[in-house]
Design a protein around this nucleic acid. Structure first.
Lengths: 246, 246
DNA sequence: TTTTCCTGTTGACCTAAATCAAGCAACCGA
DNA sequence: TCGGTTGCTTGATTTAGGTCAACAGGAAAA
């Protein structure tokens, strides 16, 4: 079931692109990097074949060798505790990088699975470390990416610890909206890549509560819901609901 | 109220120590670093004067220049959202490093306050970045430290999202016990450096629930509680309670 | 076509923890 | 010594969200 991380490289030949052509490079590489250096990074990156929905990229305990940038599709990461309880720890969209939790003890700290057909860029971390010694802006960039992950995880702790169901759901919607619009997609109409189950798991709620919360937000006219299709009618109000607390 | 981060360096002269003498160096520096390199790191680190309980090290929005290692005492970090709601995001004990959330946008992402009289080592981050270019094991070490922060934040998301009050409190106690024993202190008898208020805030519970949970764990014979003084009678059972879920 | 499966929605009821309230012990400044 | 404050505990009551149950629509299989 787990995709061999050494074997997800594209073997079709029809996905060929380089970092310098990639319209996501502003997200996963430092903006102030010159072409020559981008090229050096480009050469160590392995572009994956399409990963199917439900296919795993790696699992907890697998040896850590790489971090991964999402090129297309969407990815979720989750922990499994000793009792088999699952905790979704993040959703990753194109331009976002995952896998930083594996560096600490050279072993991946979570499970990573594709939520739809997705493509990834595999970034061998040791090679990045070597390059970082020669390209200071690259070193800085990876420190920054990890730092941003820490900040967003702390925001998530705030959400889980202090907000009620409405606040949690609204916070997720606003986050997704912002991340879509960063890629020049609509900030008001979006298709959720994840199930109600995953949303509930991520937000510490049951699917029933997630469903009821969507319905309530719709009844209040703030959003329109049609399955996974969400339209945000009133961004202001949604923003306000984000602060709804226990 | 905020301590000027540029001005917490020790001016007394009576706290003089170097990294190579420090019995915490195994925690904040790579074990496999040779003396010459330790010495280079040593020279960029500023050791702080004692910070009083309640004194802030820095606040959200302050310019980021350094991360900090706790030398003695204990530190808490917390977020304040727009409505002034506080979220404690971490407790830091001697040998632990905080401040990694500031790298992402060159601005500190949280507030940091001392919970008792503490001393810190200020680690100017740009200098570490420079040294890291020359000492690969140091670069790797800082990537690892940040990665460990991410992993522990993900564990915290699991705790907040899936565990009931007993599970949360037990998880905190086990974490503290492990961290104390890592410094060769007792794993069974510990003095909590933080108030019930801080515990509740961190764990997403009210102080009343925290208090009741301590009482219940005591009634079950798993721990003994005397104010902030905790004795763990049955580590096994406490470990089991950690998995108690909603 | 029907059947099954899967995901999501809605309703009725229940419970863990929040809220509200009271009180106690330790500490501190007057 | 006293009055006030702070930190913590305990009890009574309320409530948000969990649990259990039923059902609906769409997709895929029979």
């Amino acid at each position: 079931m787990t995709t061999d991380p050494y074997n997800i490289a594209c073997t079709h030949g029809f996905i060929q692109s380089s970092c310098s052509d990639c319209n996501l490079k502003g997200l996963c590489l430092p903006i102030a990097m010159d072409l020559k250096d981008i090229d050096r990074v480009d050469h160590i990156i392995k572009r994956s074949r399409p990963i199917q929905a439900g296919e795993h990229i790696y699992r907890t305990g697998d040896g850590f060798t790489s971090v991964f940038a999402v090129r297309s599709g969407s990815i979720k990461t989750y922990l499994l505790d000793d009792d088999g309880v699952e905790q979704v720890t993040g959703f990753y969209l194109p331009g976002e990088i995952l896998g930083f939790d594996g560096i600490g003890n050279n072993t991946h700290g979570c499970n990573v699975v594709s939520m739809e057909t997705s493509t990834l860029c595999e970034i061998p971390f040791e090679r990045i470390e070597e390059l970082s010694l020669q390209i200071p802006v690259l070193q800085r960039h990876f420190f920054q990416l990890m730092s941003q992950q820490i900040e967003s995880d702390h925001q998530m702790m705030m959400t889980l610890s202090k907000k009620n169901a409405e606040g949690r759901v609204a916070t997720l919607l606003v986050s997704l909206s912002n991340r879509f619009s960063r890629r020049n997609l609509s900030a008001t109409s979006l298709r959720l890549p994840m199930s109600r189950m995953d949303i509930g798991n991520f937000l510490g709620l049951t699917i029933e509560t997630v469903s009821r919360t969507f319905s309530r937000l719709q009844k209040e006219g703030i959003i329109n819901v049609d399955g996974r299709e969400i339209h945000i009618n009133d961004h202001e109000k949604l923003q306000a609901v984000c602060h709804a607390s226990k």
